[in-house]
């Protein structure tokens, strides 16, 4: 059984059809990348997987670990093991990072019938993961994302992923706004989390990130459809030629 099976997914946002029939299967252990020009529906796909309600699914099916993902509320999807690294992480003033993450971890553990983790066990683990992302210890006491730089926010997303250990991690434009050093740190964080039990879906506009996080499969999304799939070499081809040729090609068969 595949970890994620998307069949004929159609999605409307504010009355406009953004995704027009997506088919995608991802197995545990695989890293897939979704690439595409702006407005092609990449982020929409990421949000739908995280079960954001504003995105209305009009047709199709998503099975996650054999269960109907579209029936799940966001928190249930999260507890089942779907994690979204946000393109724009949100600030939560007054709530400490540690408290927030431990609450989240315990919500997930409780859902899975595991014992909750107390602060004594949590803190050492938290510190360990901070090191992985080369993040400052001071973060322990700071409010969630409040006053963080763009790069710190993105690193914080991966830190959360490292702690919550999802089955499927969806990275939505994690590379945007990162300088080259931050990109390297984030990518090495992500790479260290690759495992045979975990799948990743890396959504990006640029090939640059894929130099560091080398995917097993690359899919190109144009106007709400996956128009081409291939290996990592497809990303390089796109980098070389841009999206224009593939958009033209995508339109072409319709006129034949």
């Amino acid at each position: 059984m595949s970890l994620l099976e998307i069949k004929n997914l159609h999605v409307n946002v504010a009355g406009h059809e953004i995704l027009k029939g997506i088919d995608l299967t991802i197995n545990a252990g695989e890293v897939h990348s979704i690439m595409g020009p702006n407005g092609s529906g990449k982020s929409t796909l990421a949000q739908v997987l995280a079960r954001r309600e504003a995105y209305q699914v009009t047709d199709g099916q998503i099975l996650f670990d054999g269960k109907d993902l579209l029936e799940m509320k966001p928190e249930v999807a999260a507890c089942e093991g779907v994690f979204l690294a946000f393109q724009y992480p949100v600030e939560i003033p007054g709530i400490g990072n540690t408290y927030f993450l431990r609450s989240a971890l315990n919500a997930i553990r409780k859902y899975r019938g595991l014992e909750e983790m107390d602060a004594m066990d949590f803190l050492p683990m938290f510190r360990e993961k901070l090191k992985l992302l080369e993040m400052d210890d001071k973060l322990i006491n700071r409010s969630v994302n409040e006053g963080f730089s763009g790069g710190e926010k993105k690193r914080n997303e991966i830190l959360q992923m490292a702690i919550l250990e999802p089955k499927l991690a969806v990275l939505d434009e994690t590379d945007s706004g990162l300088d080259i050093d931050a990109l390297r740190i984030v990518a090495s964080g992500v790479n260290s989390l690759r495992s045979k039990d975990r799948a990743m879906l890396v959504v990006t506009h640029y090939q640059r990130l894929l130099n560091y996080i080398v995917p097993d499969f690359v899919h190109v999304l144009v106007d709400g459809r996956i128009v081409r799939s291939g290996g990592p070499e497809l990303a390089l081809e796109l980098e070389d030629k841009g999206y224009g040729w593939i958009e033209a090609e995508a339109k072409a068969p319709a006129s034949v």
Binding site: A50, K73, P74, E75, A77, A78, C79, F83, L84, F86, P89, V90, I92, P93, G94, I95, F100, L101, S103, A104, L105, A107, I108, Y111, S143, Q160, L164
Partner: peptide, 19 residues
């Protein structure tokens, strides 16, 4: 954001308000 991390809506509201 909080729900995506596993927290129920009412817990998320509590957390935001407490913050």
């Amino acid at each position: 954001y909080l729900q995506q991390r596993g927290l129920k809506a009412e817990d998320a509201v509590s957390m935001i308000v407490n913050g």
